[in-house]
């Protein structure tokens, strides 16, 4: 007679898997990829391809030759890291720098801690911050976005470069002048300077809604992050409109949207309980505004998220989920 299987309960599973979650994130990133290509041309696509390919390659090499374990590149997480890293880079960044970024992201950010699930910091941000500190000039020279009709008019992309609205604003405030910020519609659709994936709030919101529907993320981190940045920004702006940016531009420009929806919500590096996530989001929002206004960098989202990543174990200890009958 055939032997029966025996195991503890439960005997069925929801069908959820790490793979499914990672591929859901990849699907949610597609609108961002499309807008990046739309506004920055095929340069953007090359940056993404190189970033994803090198992330996959480095993960495979490390698992095969250093850790000597079964490869996990099919789980989709290296592609998430690759895409998110690319979305945090300017489209005209030399491709060899992209490869270095991928090596740091995967090698130091993820695999050195033991791989997916064990990394305390968001790997893509580790890669980006490494590049930002090592290659400050290349990392802060952004091409001006193309018009929607100019995608195929190649060559024009490299010709004009300029600062992001955040950097321009900071320079202008320092010099005592003022600048024209992009119109709200441009800022919302993404017609402004910036890293590949951060420009279009619309695309990010579409991706975010997909992740919410698939229950990959919950609203707690994005809402508390963006909300805090908005409120804090509004308070500063009301105190002195000449010195500080208006709150709508604060949340639409720079990486707040991308950070709040895709980076801070990274499961591995964010708190477990709802209240912990709210605290985490508030911390990210506060730190972002503080770094933007009083730090030496024009943008602070990456640093803010990495700093809050470091607080996650403490937050998990301090903010436990609500227990039954408590």
């Amino acid at each position: 007679m055939k032997l029966l299987n025996v195991s503890g309960s439960p005997h069925v599973h929801s069908g959820e898997s790490v793979k499914r979650i990672m591929w859901d994130v990849n699907i949610a990133l597609i609108p961002l990829l499309l807008t990046a290509i739309l506004f920055f041309g095929f340069d953007a696509l090359f940056v993404c391809l190189v970033s994803v390919a090198s992330c996959l390659l480095f993960q495979w090499l490390i698992e095969k030759f250093l850790l000597k374990t079964k490869t996990t590149i099919t789980d989709g997480s290296a592609i998430v890291t690759g895409l998110l890293l690319a979305f945090n880079l300017p489209s005209n960044l030399p491709l060899w720098i992209v490869v270095i970024g991928a090596l740091v992201a995967i090698g130091i950010g993820k695999m050195s801690f033991g791989g997916l699930g064990k990394n305390p910091f968001n790997p893509a941000l580790v890669g980006r911050v490494f590049l930002l500190i090592s290659f400050p000039v290349q990392m802060t020279t952004w091409p001006r976005p193309l018009g929607i009709c100019n995608i195929f008019a190649n060559g024009a992309v490299d010709a004009t470069t300029g600062a992001t609205p955040l950097a321009a604003f900071k320079e202008a405030v320092k010099a005592g002048g003022s600048i024209d910020l992009p119109s709200l519609m441009d800022a919302f659709l993404g017609h402004m300077g910036g890293s590949l994936g951060e420009i279009s709030a619309l695309a990010i919101i579409i991706g975010g809604i997909y992740l919410l529907c698939r229950k990959v993320i919950s609203w707690h981190i994005p809402v508390s992050f963006i909300g805090t940045a908005f409120v804090f920004g509004a308070i500063l702006w009301l105190c002195n409109p000449n010195m500080y940016m208006d709150p709508v531009h604060v949340i639409l420009s720079g990486g707040i949207m991308l950070g709040a929806v895709f980076m801070a919500t990274d499961m591995v590096t964010s708190p477990m309980s709802k209240w912990g996530q709210v605290v985490f989001g508030i911390g990210c929002g506060l730190l972002t505004i503080i770094i933007r206004n009083w730090g030496s960098y024009p943008e602070g989202v990456s640093f803010a998220i990495l700093l809050m990543n470091a607080c996650v174990p403490l937050i998990n200890k301090g903010f436990k989920p609500k227990r039954f009958a408590k």
Binding site: I21, G117, P321, K326
Partner: peptide, 17 residues
């Protein structure tokens, strides 16, 4: 490996971790 997604925390009817 655990990816710390918190789905177990959300699913627990006793509010445990």
């Amino acid at each position: 490996d655990c990816i710390r997604c918190g789905k177990c925390v959300k699913a627990c009817p006793m509010g445990l971790e």
